[in-house]
Design a protein around this nucleic acid. Structure first.
Lengths: 345, 345
DNA sequence: GTGAAAGCGCTAACAT
DNA sequence: ATGTTAGCGCTTTCAC
């Protein structure tokens, strides 16, 4: 059989069922006015012909593709794998298809957006990738809502949902302060990401408020990955005259994991005995035995729900919500990498 | 602006450029016969109107959507995240869109296939998920090629690409044998997956050939995940009268990682000093400092290329290749979890 | 409740 | 090389 075997259409089904083609269409459209009896006749005929409605054709008339685009940067961070999975699950539950685009960390997602426009998707979700404001308006002009996940673009009218990264950074600073740390190292992520910057800012502000001197806080770049943080840590501690910090903040869990392994396995520094450590995200990987990371939990499910809510997939005629910046609080999770101060659970 | 703002079509562009609508279509179709001058006029007009061709409409006529469906099971295994990434990258390079479906481990992917059929995808790739033969033929009947990645269905005419899991299992058995291990524990994965079964079979066959007694080989189930293998290991070693094996085969790296952490962190058993260990896949996570797993590398890129080759995305008229079973050899990677026998690299 | 007919935005002959 | 025309498979008025 060649591939160009002619597909069976609603006309074929109509013929077999002895009804009009519109009846077939109605039989497959929930809530359309059709007698249950005819519906059954049609369904039976469809079943016998292995008929499946052509969504492409229906999208053309309805102007709704039922497809949502998910643009992903940095899959090297498991957090975004979990995010992807959460979106995929939820969207599938609602009968939506997910079109995936992976863009290299730091790269523009404009190409992806262009593709997305061609496919008339019903919405686009963008995680950890860059976006030009021109693309935002191209989407909006066409009535395609776009929401940024854990990212925001100041001055853009794209809506977004994010963890309150600044507040999360403060939470961690407080934990360290309570544990008595006096000098700090921060391993930062992608410098183009607001996520990393916000966490660092909140963290430092709170530290300074807590009486820590600016000169007792150092930053190095960990490139948002395990490997990046691992080697950055070794490099840092191998310098001839470093003074060893008392605490390290890995701006996300995967980097904190890299830091921890470098410390314990390569540098002979024990966590938290010799040095305290914290991450951010609360990925399942960080909960595992070797790490048991103290961290801030990003409430993925809630963030995913909020994102979907802003998309208003069910109310396509509703005007696009612009400029929303939904900040959701993270929660401090005490585990083993910061000694719990007395009186704390 | 409401969402129903009427989209700009090729007619609008044609009007502005002062040409016919077909000219616009041609301007956007590489290789079609159109004067460079008119092409430029059209492109300019399109640019001014922010026009983007509607792929949905073109799919309707061409019967090619340029979409490939990727059905993913078990994202808890990082191996499949890397696989997804590899497919996504390669498909994007070739201007194809990727429609993702995630199905729960062990669940049928029939629902996903049904969706796929609606969207007239150009091909479907199925990794670590179940597939009924009925769905295979539904795809084939419609001219949609489907290829199984690291999975095969005996007696089905679906084509597939997989690592030679049996041979890989043998490789690992040989490594253990060379290192002198006499008793074995196998931590298996999803029992419905041929992948796990094949590896175990090759492993055991070679062991028996090597003179190991059947009674010196035990199997426990690790559920294809870190957590599953971690707790299975603890459970096994905590039984009142276990005899401790000399070697453990984690049927994939993520399980081997779970086994290793359980051993060293919970049970006080050192690897490879007290006990040898091996995994399978060679995921980047297993190369990290805490693990440095001896394993068999699955050549992802090669497997991805073969898979795409079988799909023949560029030659839609070509008959679907059925029943292909491409087995690609894995390579043994010596690292730290099996002591390297004398004379070996 | 049902059928006829007019599109949706594009591509692909077919003319010119 | 360019324009005209007829669909692709469906949804959606509009009559009945």
């Amino acid at each position: 059989m060649t591939r160009s075997s002619t597909r069976t259409t609603s006309f074929d089904v109509a013929a077999l069922a002895g009804v009009s083609q519109s009846a077939v269409s109605r039989a497959f459209t929930p809530g359309s006015s059709i007698a249950e009896e005819t519906r059954q006749k049609v369904l039976e005929a469809a079943r016998r012909l292995n008929y499946v409605p052509n969504s492409i054709a229906s999208s053309l008339t309805t102007k709704r593709s039922n497809i949502v685009a998910l643009i992903l940067g940095n899959l090297a961070n498991p957090f975004y794998v979990h995010v992807m999975h959460a979106f995929s699950r939820k969207l599938q539950e609602h009968g939506r298809q997910v079109l995936i685009f992976t863009v290299d960390a730091g790269a523009e997602s404009d190409d992806a957006i262009l593709q997305v426009l061609k496919y008339q998707v019903d919405g686009v979700i963008l995680t950890s990738a860059q976006l030009s404001t021109r693309m935002t308006s191209m989407c909006h002009d066409r009535g395609i809502p776009i929401v940024l996940f854990n990212r925001y673009i100041p001055g853009s009218d794209a809506s977004g949902v994010r963890c309150d990264n600044t507040a999360g950074g403060r939470l961690l600073a407080e934990a360290f302060l309570a544990a008595g740390a006096k000098s700090y190292l921060i391993v930062t992520g992608d410098p183009t990401a607001t996520t990393s910057g916000d966490r660092v800012r909140g963290f430092m502000d709170r530290l300074i408020e807590g009486g820590i001197k600016r000169t007792d806080i150092t930053q190095i770049e960990g490139y948002s990955s395990y490997e990046g943080a691992f080697s950055a840590t070794i490099r840092y501690f191998s310098a001839p005259d470093v003074k060893r910090p008392e605490a390290i903040f890995g701006v996300n869990d995967i980097m904190a994991m890299g830091v921890m392994d470098a410390l314990q396995l390569r540098l002979g520094i024990r966590v938290p005995k010799d040095l305290m450590l914290a991450g951010f995200d609360d990925i399942p990987e960080g909960r595992r035995a070797p790490y048991h990371l103290t961290t801030v939990r990003q409430p993925i499910d809630q963030m995913v729900n909020e994102t979907l809510a802003i998309l208003h997939l069910d109310e396509p005629t509703r005007p696009i919500e612009r400029g929303i910046d939904r900040r959701i609080a993270g929660r401090l999770i005490w585990r083993s990498t910061i000694p719990v101060p007395q009186g704390n659970g």
